[in-house]
Design a protein around this nucleic acid. Structure first.
Lengths: 128, 128
DNA sequence: CATCTAATTTGACATCCTTCTATCCAAGGG
DNA sequence: CCCTTGGATAGAAGGATGTCAAATTAGATG
């Protein structure tokens, strides 16, 4: 899987291949449970979260949570590691950033000048 | 549907309600055809595209394209208008921007320098 | 070694999604 | 007024997806 790229979605038409690959990534996050898992892992102190903590936060069985974690891991959004008895997961920033770039703000509500970021912005002078 | 908010996904845990609402939005874009439709509409000269142009770009029947456009419209990602014989669609920037904010770039690698965090991550599923 | 707990895998089932064909509505042109 | 064309709707078939119970693997502990 070549890293899909892709200029902001409103900049230029996506190729069929890029669209297919991005859809896989988006399907992974297009679920309430996985969205919450991702945010819980990403915002957890230390940058990683134990599966045991995650499981307790839902009214779902452990296998179901495990399934969702696998989907996120397969998509390259998180990465897991076993340390002793417990397994810890952490965010893979590169992959998350790819989604951010896809929906990059198209000059509207001023992208809150909160933090200096490394998003590759393409010259905004072309069409339009 | 109240406008969902939401700080970047790695900033703080999403509430159950916000996650549910965002998942609906993400499901709308988590499809290769709809991704391409969105990018074709958004990047089209004049900011809008005719359904007739969109349909020709796919190996799908007109009803199928119409269905996907409806999904995007229902999600608030695009807006359509009939002018005479043809129907034109355009992007709704506010909604797209919401997704951009969700996956807003977080500081890159930033592994606590020196910490015991540099562990070799073993693919959990690899063992067999 | 036996056993307990954390986490994943497997298999089943109900639901949702994508796509099609057939049909219907809207706008224009003879 | 009829007919043609652009586009949406209705309904159905088939595949994909989320969830659970049961079984399995991997450390830790007695």
């Amino acid at each position: 899987m070549a890293a899909a790229c892709c200029a902001p979605i409103t900049r230029e038409p996506l190729s069929e291949a890029d669209a297919a690959e991005l859809a896989v990534l988006l399907k992974a996050v297009a679920d309430p449970v996985r969205l919450r898992l991702l945010s819980m892992i990403g915002s957890h102190a230390g940058g990683e979260a134990c599966v045991c903590d995650l499981t307790d936060a839902f009214d779902l069985t452990a296998p179901t949570i495990s399934h969702h974690l696998k989907v996120l891991r397969t998509a390259g959004l998180i990465d897991g590691e076993r340390r002793g008895t417990w397994v810890y997961y952490r965010i893979v920033p590169e992959t998350v950033n790819r989604l951010g770039a896809l929906f990059a703000p198209l000059a509207e509500p001023a992208p809150a000048t909160g933090g200096p970021v490394e998003v590759e912005l393409v010259p905004l002078a072309a069409s339009r």
